[in-house]
Design a protein around this nucleic acid. Structure first.
Lengths: 348, 348
DNA sequence: TTGTAAGCGTTATCAT
DNA sequence: ATGATAACGCTTACAA
């Protein structure tokens, strides 16, 4: 690989001239420019960005720390990050923590992984990335980022307890609200909920959205209509009976898996989803559209979360003002209306 | 951020000494070492790898070019890459081409994206990556990598026509063979096939595996028992009748989606999968385990493909011998035996 | 055991 | 319009 020096020598010009041409600084004669460009082409010269970065003290690169690439939300989030970064010509250094593979489901219960994160941040820092995006595998409080971190950092799909580290999260509240409003608009008034785990942020905010929709619809909130699952299909199956016994005409499941479980049980009960009873899910997982009937659900704005996170990083890099309360950006969900909600006649 | 010079000054030693300590070169007095380490800690010094890389002319980084992150195979492949790279301490520069988003399904029909790939390779080269892994979204011939590429390159999940660019692919043949052998071992002898698109490499090799299994089982190969779908669920649905009319007792679908479609049609026909008829899929997509009954299928060795690809790159980097015919590495599939295959009594 | 200084491939300042 | 040269932060002979 030739260097700028060799190009200069081959052209009988100085390195400064070659550099000026490469960076379009102007003040260069037309024919020298032509000649140099030709030689560069001929010798297949590629500038060495490492040297350039050392000199200019910027790398146009950001570090992306993914808790676990293989968790369903991550690829879309990273896709959003890459889309924006491509636009503004930033390179991505990817680190995949593989937390689920290493620590199973419980990694965030202990703090062993804090030191791993810390180490990876150091590495990224030494590589002179200009910013870091930390992508959580599940939306929750992320407190592994040292406050002493000297470069802009944002958390995607997770909250922080520090306003100086912005975060980008799902606007779960209105998503749930919209789904339940949809149910109500189809005449349902006895709407059961199969919630997720009680300590999950998703569960709490989706429940709030449910309550708001009831309130707007002038429907009494009956806590007995809310049962808690654990996000797994089986728990959807198991909790369905309770709701049916209470006379629910519709079931709002807080994820698609539990909705699938409800489908299973409803089928056994001889109840046809979308005809005798309504079911809605959340997340718009791939299987949602393959259920019979296809499941009405709420799509997570994963791609947009990544996109926004990189927008925020770039604003931070340019020292531009941020306009988000407490540094939290909420991104709206998109509904997927399919065939799992039946219309109920008035007075029924 | 302090530099090595500032550390040296603060310690009243030379930069060489600090450097030697950092790189554990030895020949350093115990107490100077202690002192320097303490100051490094205190001043929170992080070595600048950009400068280091410039000097040492290696970056311990490889470029990963993904055709499209959001295609189902990619996250696992990249996960495999990151696992190995973490072990050998290589950093990943990620490029997401977003081919599907940009060109829909037909990008590989035209060559517009060749110039994009070429540009990205140049960028990566200028960043001084030591090798490149190109990750295809679907297994096919990848011919977008210039033969003039000056650094080791391997294609994951795709073939190349150049032996100097190794590739790592799925061993589809034995996967299909094993699946059909499984069917035969359960007593099935009239095994229909819903194949994928005719021009797909997957279709061709999986068909070959099917034929081999028949041969080993002393079963006549009836080309009429093979119908072609287009990988979509609908085409599984539509092709089922043909096979049933021909008296198939088992259907080998070349992916899980088409198997799902077959389930749908069989259900309409009043045939119970796993009792009256056997169905197997391929790929082990997420929905396979949620089908009723859970679908027996063949899992793709995605993670291992990525892992192997980076192993190969690292071997290449170390100029070690490669031991693969034509530079093609085949990775075996893993079967997921579930509930969709019934046992047939002899003579039935 | 420690220090001096050259040099990696660029950019940028200042002359010419 | 072009060139000489210092500097970016580090490693590495080589000298002391």
């Amino acid at each position: 690989m030739p260097t700028i020096k060799e190009i200069a020598k081959a052209c009988n010009v100085s390195v400064a001239t070659v550099s000026n041409i490469l960076n379009e600084k102007g003040g260069v004669g037309e024919k020298t420019k032509e000649k140099v460009l030709k030689v560069i082409e001929e010798m297949n010269y590629t500038p060495n960005s490492v040297a350039k970065n050392l000199k200019t003290k910027n790398t146009r690169s950001i570090g992306v720390i993914a808790e676990d690439m293989t968790v369903f939300a991550l690829p879309d989030i990273i896709d959003g990050i890459t889309e924006y970064c491509e636009k503004v010509d930033y390179q991505i250094l990817l680190v995949n923590l593989r937390l689920f593979k290493k620590f199973k489901d419980s990694y965030y219960q202990n703090d062993d992984y804090k030191v791993i994160v810390y180490k990876e941040i150091r590495k990224l820092l030494s590589k002179q990335v200009e910013g870091i995006i930390y992508v959580a595998a599940h939306e929750r409080l992320i407190n592994v980022i040292p406050d002493t971190i000297p470069i802009p950092t944002v958390v995607a799909y997770g909250f922080t307890n520090k306003p100086q580290i912005p975060s980008v999260v799902v606007l779960d509240m209105t998503g749930a609200q919209e789904l339940v409003r949809h149910l109500i608009s189809y005449g349902h008034r006895k709407i059961g909920v199969i919630a997720g785990k009680k300590d999950s942020i998703h569960t709490q905010t989706r429940l709030e959205g449910y309550q708001k929709a009831l309130f707007d619809g002038n429907i009494l909130y009956d806590p007995g209509m809310v049962v808690y699952g654990d996000w797994d299909r089986k728990s959807g199956y198991e909790n369905t009976d309770i709701l049916i016994e209470k006379g629910a005409t519709a079931i709002f499941c807080m994820n698609d898996f539990m909705a699938g479980g409800a489908y299973d049980r409803l089928d056994e009960l001889g109840l046809k989803v979308g005809e005798d009873i309504a079911v809605v899910g959340y997340d718009n997982r791939e299987m949602a559209s393959y259920e019979k009937p296809p499941l009405t659900t709420m799509g997570l704005p994963l791609h947009d979360i990544g996109y926004r996170a990189s927008e925020v990083i770039v604003r931070l890099l340019k020292k531009e003002e941020l306009h988000a309360e407490n540094g939290i950006y909420y991104i709206e969900c998109n509904p997927f209306i399919r065939k799992s909600v039946n219309r109920i006649e008035e007075g029924q």
